[in-house]
């Protein structure tokens, strides 16, 4: 019982230290608030906004911001703010899901490559190199053209195009962790290859990947926006930030808000994720400073 208490105590202390370092810069607090706010808004839009995001109202086309439409309306008379908030759902969902896809697959490939070495390693890493040779947006665009549009496909495309970075980083850390004595100790004390790979190696690569995933969330959101901007992403009329900017561009001279407001949300969200990713790196893996 007492021992159990000691366990809790150390965990609590660790959490406290963690939070202390994480929030040591004021900007991080700001970024964290933005992320939380975005998530809350995305969840609560239907309650908060009286408008339907997709219902056009031809009487209210391209209205400038006023009391009833804080950010005005677009060419089909839809409330811009409402659409932006619905767009948050798409951005966050695509960002999180595609990062997860990339992280999990990339980590698995990196682990296999680094752990097996030899021919398996060469094959996996050459394929990763080949994927890296094609710029991310192009790769996602290309895969998207093969798979077709739609939420699921977009997540998959962006996820796949970001795999190589995770595979590389994971492989690198697997190779360096492998040399450490505690891996040798694992072998000596009877752990199987699989046990070592998962329990000792993967667990120790996890934090650097977690850091990278946070930092890449912003990238994924940017890529989704770019694809949607090029009309290769989310299908209209579903609201997405990139699509809204693209659509608003046509009416730029009549109501700049339609194109510019969604962009500000992109910048804020991506920035917030980047700043939190930096802070997370400082907490979890101070050694990574500069490499990511």
């Amino acid at each position: 019982m007492e021992v159990q208490k000691g366990k809790q105590h150390t965990t609590a202390k660790r959490m406290q230290e963690f939070a202390g370092v994480f929030f040591s810069r004021k900007l991080v607090i700001f970024g964290f608030i933005i992320i939380v706010a975005m998530i809350l808004l995305a969840l609560l839009v239907p309650v908060l906004s009286p408008y339907d995001p997709n219902l056009s109202s031809l009487k209210e086309v391209l209205r400038h911001p006023d009391i009833s439409h804080w950010l005005g309306t677009d060419d089909l008379g839809r409330d811009v703010l409402t659409r932006i908030l619905y767009g948050t759902r798409v951005s966050l969902l695509v960002g999180l899901a595609s990062t997860l896809v990339a992280g999990v697959l990339g980590m698995a490939l990196g682990l296999i490559a680094g752990y097996m070495e030899g021919i398996v390693d060469s094959v996996i890493m050459r394929i990763m190199d080949a994927m890296l040779a094609v710029p991310i947006v192009i790769l996602a665009l290309f895969l998207g053209s093969a798979l077709g549009k739609g939420l699921g496909n977009i997540i998959f495309c962006i996820g796949i195009s970001m795999i190589p970075r995770y595979a590389r980083v994971t492989r690198g850390s697997v190779l360096s962790v492998k040399k450490l004595d505690y891996i040798t100790a694992g072998r000596i004390y009877g752990a199987s290859r699989f046990q070592i790979a998962v329990k000792h190696i993967l667990k120790n690569c996890l934090s650097s990947n977690l850091v990278m995933m946070t930092m890449n969330l912003g990238d994924a959101i940017l890529t989704e926006a770019s694809l949607s901007y090029l009309a290769m992403g989310i299908n209209p009329p579903t609201a997405s930030w990139g699509g809204m900017v693209s659509n608003g561009y046509e009416w730029l001279s009549m109501n700049p808000c339609v194109a510019i407001a969604p962009g500000i949300f992109i910048v804020l969200t991506v920035w917030a994720f980047n700043v939190c990713g930096d802070a997370l790196r400082d907490v979890l893996d101070p050694k990574l400073k500069g490499t990511l």
């Binding site: 450490l180 004595d181 505690y182 040798t184 100790a185 694992g186 000596i188 004390y189 000792h200 120790n204």
Partner: peptide, 13 residues
């Protein structure tokens, strides 16, 4: 058999 290593920092996960 067992082994004790040089670097006390590297020999524990």
């Amino acid at each position: 058999m067992a082994m004790i290593f040089q670097d006390p920092y590297g020999s524990l996960d």
